[in-house]
Design a protein around this nucleic acid. Structure first.
Lengths: 161, 161
DNA sequence: ACTGTTATTAGTCAAGGATAGTCAAGATCA
DNA sequence: TGATCTTGACTATCCTTGACTAATAACAGT
């Protein structure tokens, strides 16, 4: 059975594939009207189909002129290991494990020395200053965001920007 | 999709960028007429887009011959402004204010575009995902760490960015 | 000159409008 | 029967509008 979610998913994928740069920008209400569903259905589709694990990055803005933007990530063989790293993180990650990842990312040329330095400072337990479980979960969210951004650039050299 | 506020912001930025000395001087009513909005909309744009955090100084005068003058602040060569920025943060800082600072740090060449992007993602409320007070306090610690690192570097020879 | 009045600006604030997000209950499917 | 999907009430965020306020200039009367 092809659910309405599947239809919306297909529609968005087509938008992304036919666009330049692999980006689709839509308005939630308008999309919901097109497919005659409630707006929150769109969120459901995005949360289940356009995750980083599936190779997409989603940004949005509320209020007047609001939008939802879905961008395809470059998950080619060259940076498939980034995706593995992403999945490895899970719900929580320790400072030591994060530092290891940051080091690897830098060695692989995915992060500059300075980016690595900034990141290390930010994920440090003294900076986060929360109870250990919350801390590890927060650090996981941070590391995941970073890797998702790295996946936006297809094996690109970090200094070029 | 773009809101009228975005359009007005872009217009003012262009005025500033094409001027000598980085100053734009406009009349509120006239600008409002140009973009067919109420005058107070101009105040909204200025209050949300041309803040001190972003490195702008706004002066105005009422009455006949009144005006609004927006000036881009220049950074002093000895990085004293970084220290001021650090002190401005205090115990907590909002996402909007942080984004303003990151914007300015990038404009001033203290952060690369990518560093700014990573940082913005890291201080985003969705990444932090804490109750608003804890969130603002954590964000303050993060921003302070970043600026501390920039200050440390400022002591040595200027960085190649 | 001085003083008061009017015209001409800009500022403030709160309400309303326009988006999107969250969550959990109910419906449907495999 | 458990997983997935659908729905809607409630929330969060950002933008727009307009009534009211405040400051400054211009002018008129003395």
């Amino acid at each position: 059975m092809r659910s309405i979610s599947d239809v919306i998913e297909a529609h968005l994928k087509r938008l992304i594939d036919t666009s330049e740069g692999g980006v689709a920008e839509v308005q939630r209400v308008q999309l919901a009207e097109t497919f005659r569903c409630v707006p929150s259905q769109i969120n459901y589709v995005i949360q289940t189909r356009f995750t980083v694990e599936r190779g997409y990055l989603v940004e949005s803005k509320r209020g007047g002129g609001g939008y939802i933007r879905i961008q395809r990530l470059f998950v080619d063989p060259d940076n498939a290991w980034l995706m593995e790293l992403y999945e490895e993180i899970g719900e929580g990650i320790t400072q030591t494990a994060s530092e290891g990842m940051i080091y690897r990312l830098q060695e692989a040329g995915k992060l500059t020395l300075r980016e690595a330095e900034l990141l290390s400072a930010l994920i440090h337990r003294q900076t986060l200053a929360l109870e250990v479980n919350d801390r590890d979960r927060l650090r996981a969210r941070m590391m995941k965001r970073v890797i998702a951004i790295l996946l936006k650039e297809a094996g690109g050299e970090p200094r070029a920007l």
